[in-house]
């Protein structure tokens, strides 16, 4: 069973956003997304300090089967990228909400959070 925890918010491009801590959120791809991609082999992430607007491409995720762009669910400045993904991209499959997170960003427009989907809405969205 795919798992989309209530504590996160979601966007249609299948990224999740964690709850806010010190103006900062953690972003990753959802369980649905990692399941669709299959075996992840490579994740290309932006440099720390990059400032990216909502819906802008922030990276590429590649699996044995296919390659997909990653999109910013909210605007922000990249303050951390997951250093483990370089050598262990499979963490995205094994633990997308934990060790397989992608980036941490400092929010530049916290109001955008109001427009994100709840776990319930996202689950309905992917069922369509």
């Amino acid at each position: 069973m795919l798992n989309h925890p209530d504590k996160f918010q979601y966007v249609k491009t299948h990224e999740y956003v964690s709850s806010v801590e010190n103006d900062t959120v953690t972003i990753g791809i959802t369980d649905f997304a990692q399941d669709q991609l299959g075996d992840v082999t490579f994740v290309e992430l932006p440099k720390i300090g990059a400032s990216l607007a909502i819906e802008k491409k922030f990276g590429v995720i590649e699996s044995v089967k296919s390659v997909s762009d990653l999109f910013m669910p909210v605007s922000g400045e990249i303050v951390e990228v997951n250093p483990k993904l370089d050598s262990s991209p499979e963490l995205v499959n094994n633990d997308c909400y934990g060790d397989g997170w992608l980036v941490k960003i400092k929010l530049t427009n916290a109001k955008e959070l109001d427009n994100l989907m709840s776990a319930h809405d996202y689950t309905q969205f992917i069922a369509e």
Partner: peptide, 10 residues
């Protein structure tokens, strides 16, 4: 061909 990073040629 082989490549040297983890990016897959398709």
């Amino acid at each position: 061909l082989k490549t040297f990073n983890r990016i897959i040629p398709r």
